[in-house]
């Protein structure tokens, strides 16, 4: 608790502002109503029911909503809380607790490692290539030497799209011809990164695929195996790119990708839309996978590290 309060106090104001901006539409959206609910004079049965309703409308999902509300209610009852603002604070704490997901810290900044390999996966149209461009920019600005691997050899013009982002971020892109074996692209990219010694992060773009496509999921496993053979413990992070407008299917996506390549974190994109991304609560709750980054706009610098407190505060804040 003390620790959490401390963390809340140290939120980088710039980060908060950026996320606030992108979530401002969210605030006008449905989850912002939660604040209004808790402006009631007393804690009633209707208050809890309304809370349930709003959470479900925010894509939090029926199961996680029930769990969240029950946990908050229990704590309110135990502590004998009568004031709605105190109950509201407890709800936020419960949400943060879910989002923290007991995950180890992001494993990209390990100074002892020569090459960190990051695999980026996701369904079609979730924003993988864009997110990779932003990630490249993000780490390059922090003095890292980034190389991108264009292992999406399937979608028409995906390689071109990554090259455009590579140019914008000022990093090199290793690619083959369209239709080439993605495993071979990854192999070459790792070799090139290791031999030139001019890279310490390799980010791999993969073909967007529906998690129900069995063969393509197998291909993904192969990419992971190729990386594993060449670099110790690679890939060090497997990030699932998730569109904030996605509904309950996001949970299935995360679990299927998790089964085949072992997802270690989520990049939540398109938070500048009217969508709330409430489904990440369900993902953290049911699969224990934390959000690592949030995409907050279309520009290359529109990427922020995820902080549960910032997220929850921004998610719930109301006018």
């Amino acid at each position: 608790m003390v620790f959490q309060r401390f963390r809340r106090a140290t939120v980088d104001p710039a980060d908060q502002q950026k996320l606030d901006q992108s979530l401002s539409k969210t605030r006008r959206g449905v989850l912002g109503r939660i604040g209004t609910i808790f402006q009631a004079n007393e804690i009633t049965e209707e208050l809890w029911e309304e809370l349930e309703e709003v959470l479900i409308m925010g894509d939090v999902g029926v199961d996680t909503t029930m769990k969240l509300v029950a946990a908050t209610r229990d704590r309110v009852a135990q502590a004998g809380i009568k004031r709605t603002d105190e109950a509201y604070a407890l709800l936020k704490e419960e949400m943060v607790r879910i989002l923290q997901a007991d995950a180890p810290p992001l494993d990209i900044d390990n100074p002892n490692r020569l090459l960190t390999v990051v695999l980026v996966v996701g369904v079609n149209g979730s924003g993988k290539t864009t997110s990779i461009g932003k990630l490249a920019h993000y780490y390059r600005k922090r003095g890292r030497r980034v190389v991108l691997a264009a292992a999406d050899t399937f979608r028409a013009a995906a390689i071109d799209q990554l090259k455009v982002w590579g140019e914008r971020a000022g990093v090199s892109v290793i690619s083959h011809m369209p239709g080439a074996d993605p495993g071979a692209v990854v192999y070459d990219a790792i070799r090139a990164s290791q031999e030139s010694r001019d890279a310490d992060i390799l980010i791999i773009d993969t073909a967007g695929r529906l998690h129900t496509n069995y063969n393509l999921m197998k291909e993904m496993e192969k990419i992971r195996n190729v990386a594993q053979r060449q670099v110790h413990k690679a890939p060090h992070e497997v990030l699932l790119v998730l569109d904030a407008t996605t509904g309950q299917n996001a949970i299935t996506q995360a679990s299927k990708f998790g089964d085949s390549v072992g997802v270690t974190g989520v990049i939540l994109t398109k938070l500048d839309s009217t969508a709330k991304g409430g489904v990440v609560l369900a993902i953290a709750d049911q699969l224990g996978v934390p959000v690592r980054f949030v995409g907050t706009g279309e520009k290359i610098e529109d990427l922020a590290e995820f902080d549960p407190w910032v997220f929850v505060e921004s998610l719930l804040e109301h006018e």
């Binding site: 959206g29 449905v30 479900i56 409308m57 925010g58 894509d59 369904v123 149209g125 569109d243 407008t245 996605t246 509904g247 309950q248 299917n249 996001a250 996506q253 839309s273 009217t274 969508a275 709330k276 409430g278 489904v279």
Partner: peptide, 15 residues
Amino acid sequence: ADAMTGQEAVRVASD
């Protein structure tokens, strides 16, 4: 529209 869209579908479509 993506079949996987969540609760937001309504606002997107009506906008």
